[in-house]
Design a protein around this nucleic acid. Structure first.
Lengths: 335, 335
DNA sequence: GTGAAAGCGCTAACAA
DNA sequence: TTGTTAGCGCTTTCAC
């Protein structure tokens, strides 16, 4: 690999001058500049980012930590982020925690060692003090999707509570009284907020919460599939009339379970979901859902990061909440 | 951020000694070692990877360049790679080219500047000489999914030609004679190979190739949707009896188009695909496909990379071909 | 407008 | 077994 020194020697200038030409931050005479540029081309020289990073304390790398790399929702967020930051020369390092707190912490350490400029974190831990440590060490973190109450940091999240409240209220308006839920990991803020919105909607409409209808799908398609099956089996004599899945993966798991048990949606049981399933266009019935704008979340997070690193922002904490809207299709029966 | 120097001062040793303790590559007395370890903990010291990288010429970063970050197929490959390399301390940098040669080249340059240890490249360009330049510069590249004939580099690919040949032969055995195809970008090796297998199967069974049934879906769901619609419209009086989609995305696009035009699979038209669609469990009819093992491709690529960087491999070029199998379900009508 | 030189944080000869 | 030191490739201050 050719270095700045080689360029300098060949062009008969100092390394400082070459550096100035590359960065264009100090005056260089036209003549010298041209010569240097020519030499750079001739030698095919490209500056070593590692050396630059060491010197300038800036890596142009952003760590993105999510619970599940195979969930389209997070991939969409990633695309949103990438579209915003990549034009400014930033690269994304992707990490998947598999919803494991230890792994999450290990990954954050690794990213810290790598001196990434920023971390976008969809956390699945509730150990805010451990995250706080990273922040205290000077790590820049923006929480995405999830947030932790006691954590002093920027975040871009959805309006989980209100959106769920509205969706469940709609379901109740359709006459449903036996309402089940497939929850995500309640240790994660999104799952908790969604469930809270769910419960509040029931309460406000004087519908009783039937514990036997509530299952823990752990934000996991397979788990949801299994738990929904068990739930249906144990409630065969009195099934819920509608099910709320707290995310897309779990909605898919639930659909597969219902299909296997020959329960038709919405005739035998209705289903609604927070977030849209894959290939929604092809699957009957079309699900009534809360539509998430994952790409937008990514973009907002990217923009926020850019603003922060450019210093064009007051030092206060920014909390962005993306509104979600309900899309009514035909998976809820009117009773 | 605390540095090795601060640790050394506080522990009353030289930075060299601290380095030795961290890396455990040279003898250090128990006493000194313990003291250093203690100081490291006390100060919360963590080595700066950037500085290490500069010194050691090793970044523990792997660039992964794919045409489309939102396609599950590539995400699965990524998961496979990650599962293999992450335990050894490597991180993945993800890049999406959007099937754009310029962007691909730009990304490769950026990764080169970042001195990533390896690049896993699913290329969508055919400019092998430009890629060759990177290799000549000393960049380590493993081609995944795609490959370029004239390029001297390792690769992990599928058996596109033979798998397609078998699938189309099966379709012909079911009595089909009017056979259409939704091709990927024929500039990409996978698309070309699949189409070649397609053509050869027709030829060997004396079936004529009807150009009007062949469309270019550009490996793109939307394009496939549009092109299939047009193709159906212009062949209304004599439709193909079966369609072959060269990847999952395009199969989805084709399904949506057929559904919109009220053509039932397989009654009105049969459909087969290279690679499985999303949420296959829920979609009727179940598609007859060539099953791809994307995670396995990723793992193989990861393992190959690890072997190469450890030097435990002869310097020759390794070409891994993953066999694909046909999964017969019920999207092909027997005629 | 240009060059010399220090230094970012680390590792690895070499010396002791 | 330990310390001294050079140097990885770059940027930037300071002098000229």
């Amino acid at each position: 690999m050719v270095t700045i020194k080689q360029v300098a020697e060949k062009a008969n200038v100092s390394t400082a001058t070459v550096s100035r030409v590359i960065n264009g931050n100090y005056p260089v005479s036209e003549k010298v500049k041209n010569k240097v540029i020519e030499t750079i081309k001739e030698l095919g020289y490209r500056p070593n980012s590692i050396a630059r990073s060491l010197k300038c304390n800036k890596t142009y790398m952003v760590g993105m930590v999510v619970p599940d790399i195979s969930n389209n929702y997070f991939m969409d967020i990633a695309r949103g982020v990438e579209s915003v930051i990549s034009p400014l020369g930033y690269s994304l390092i992707f990490c998947s925690t598999d919803e494991n707190t230890d792994k999450e912490l290990r990954l954050l350490n690794a990213l810290n060692d790598k001196r990434v400029d920023y971390v976008l974190l969809a956390s699945s831990t509730q150990e805010d003090h451990k995250l706080q440590k990273f922040i205290n060490q000077g790590m820049n973190i923006i929480m995405i999707d999830t947030s932790l109450e006691n954590l002093q940091t920027d975040s871009v999240v959805e309006d989980n509570y209100n959106a769920t409240y509205k969706l469940i209220s709609y379901v109740i308006d359709q006459g449903h009284k036996r309402i089940g839920a497939v929850n995500g990991l309640l240790s994660v803020s999104t799952a908790k907020e969604r469930y809270n919105g769910f419960c509040k909607a029931l309460e406000d409409h004087d519908i009783s919460l039937e514990q036997s209808y509530i299952v823990n799908g752990a934000y996991n398609r397979k788990k949801s599939y299994e738990e929904v099956k068990l739930m249906i089996q144990r409630n065969m004599n009195k099934l819920p009339t509608v099910l709320f899945a707290a995310n897309n993966d779990m909605a898919e798991g639930a659909m597969i379970a219902l299909k296997e048990m020959n329960l038709k949606i919405p005739d035998d049981i209705s289903l609604v979901s927070f977030g849209d399933i894959n290939l929604a266009e092809l699957i009957e019935p079309r699900l009534t859902i809360i539509s998430q704008n994952a790409v937008l979340i990514g973009q907002k997070a990217g923009e926020l990061m850019l603003k922060k690193v450019s210093g064009n922002s007051e030092n206060n904490i920014t909390k962005v909440t993306i509104p979600s809207e309900i899309i009514i299709r035909n998976s809820v029966k009117s009773i």
